[in-house]
Structures are given as structure tokens and as C-alpha cells.
């Protein structure tokens, strides 16, 4: 996974609440192999005239600023692949679908949660001055908006470490091998019905 440390890039505002993963990646593209590249599928059916991602004023955007409940719905990790392959490294919103946010972190896509009014102000600023760069500093947990104001955000420390270091968490888990083996040995005594009989 590509580590995420700092990023300075244009940001594109998207005034839509409840952007679901079906919109991010329509289901018919789910059968495509990862090697196909998912960037062309991003928001495939939303690409109508006036869609901000196609506005030349926001060309080169690597940060998406949206509304509440971004990435709700299906657990498809392909929604994250579509954003990452489409050039995005960061999404800012008042709230995220839990599964989307977990998938994002596994693929080096940072999700920044800020209060609803703050995000709404950011979107208005980006609409007023399209193409302005925004800076995200993950170790400092700060985002510098188009007006130069520095905003702090909270993030799960584990998620932050994994993103900053680009960690593969299976490798991390395998360090707990002894604890997993011990759990399994004790659990089969405690709850012998858990492993189903052969049918």
C-alpha cells in the first residue's frame, strides 16, 4: 500500500449527501479484474453535463469534498479502487459509511471527517475559487483550506499508523499467531458447538 503522509492538491466539491458505493462504482463493473484499472468506472452513470468531476476548473483534483454519509451502502471495495485509480487520495465529509472508510484505509485513501458546517463552508469556498489547492498533513492531523485556515481532524491512531507507514495488516496480525492459536484451543472447549459437524 502506498503510504499517505502529506498531500497538496486541488480539491473538487460535490454537494450530494448519501453518495453510495453503487454511484461510485455501478455494480456491473464489479466483475472486472483489478488489473483493468477502475478509474474509468468512477461515478460512471453520474457523468452528466455539469458534473463537477468533469469540470476543467477542477482538473487534477486529488481531494474530494462531499456531504454526509459518503460511501454508504454496499461493501464493495471496488468503490475505493475507482477513487484511487481515478487519482483521489483523500475524501473529506461530515460522515462516512463505516465499511467504505475501513476499505479506504486499506488502500491508502484517507477519509477526513469534519463537522457538517465546516465541510459545507469548504465546498462553498472551492465553488467560489475552483482549482485552489488544499493541503492535508496526516501526521499533524490538519487540513489547510482554500482560505489558509488550518483545520484539525481526529483519526483512529491505528488507521493513521497503517496509512502513514503503508502497513499490510496481515503481517501485523501474524505477529499475534501465538495468541490466536491459544484462543482457538480454549474456545473449542468453551464453545464446542461452534465448528459445525460435517454435513
Amino acid at each position: 500500500m502506498e503510504p499517505f503522509v502529506t498531500l497538496t492538491a486541488p480539491a473538487v466539491p460535490l454537494d450530494i449527501a448519501n453518495i453510495d458505493t453503487d454511484q461510485l462504482l455501478p455494480a456491473r463493473f464489479l466483475k472486472k479484474p483489478r488489473s483493468a484499472g477502475y478509474g474509468n468506472f468512477l461515478f460512471h452513470d453520474e457523468r452528466k453535463p455539469g458534473f463537477p468531476l468533469d469540470d476543467p476548473a477542477y482538473a487534477g483534483a486529488r481531494i474530494l469534498v462531499s456531504d454526509r454519509n459518503f460511501g454508504c451502502g454496499s461493501s464493495r471495495e471496488g468503490a475505493v479502487y475507482a477513487l484511487v485509480d481515478g487519482g483521489f487520495r483523500c475524501v473529506v465529509a461530515p460522515s462516512f459509511g463505516d465499511i467504505f472508510a475501513a476499505n479506504a484505509a486499506k488502500n491508502g485513501l484517507l477519509t477526513v471527517t469534519l463537522p457538517e458546517e465546516t465541510v459545507a463552508l469548504l465546498r462553498r469556498q472551492l465553488q467560489a475559487t475552483p482549482g485552489t489547492a488544499v493541503t492535508v498533513d496526516l501526521p499533524a492531523q490538519s487540513l489547510t483550506g482554500p482560505d489558509g485556515r488550518v483545520l484539525s481532524f481526529a483519526i483512529d491512531p491505528f488507521k493513521k499508523d497503517c496509512l502513514v507507514e503503508g502497513l499490510d495488516d496481515v503481517a501485523l496480525t501474524l505477529r499475534q499467531q501465538g495468541a490466536i492459536d491459544a484462543f482457538d484451543r480454549e474456545d473449542v472447549v468453551r464453545r464446542p458447538w461452534v465448528v459445525p459437524a460435517e454435513v
Binding site: 464493495r76 471495495e77 471496488g78 475505493v80 465499511i99 475501513a102 476499505n103 486499506k106 495488516d169 496481515v170
Partner: peptide, 8 residues
């Protein structure tokens, strides 16, 4: 869960 978590 997503695909990376499934693999985990």
C-alpha cells in the same frame, strides 16, 4: 467487510 478484510 471489504475485499482486503476478507483476505485478512
Amino acid at each position: 467487510i471489504g475485499a482486503t478484510e476478507v483476505s485478512h
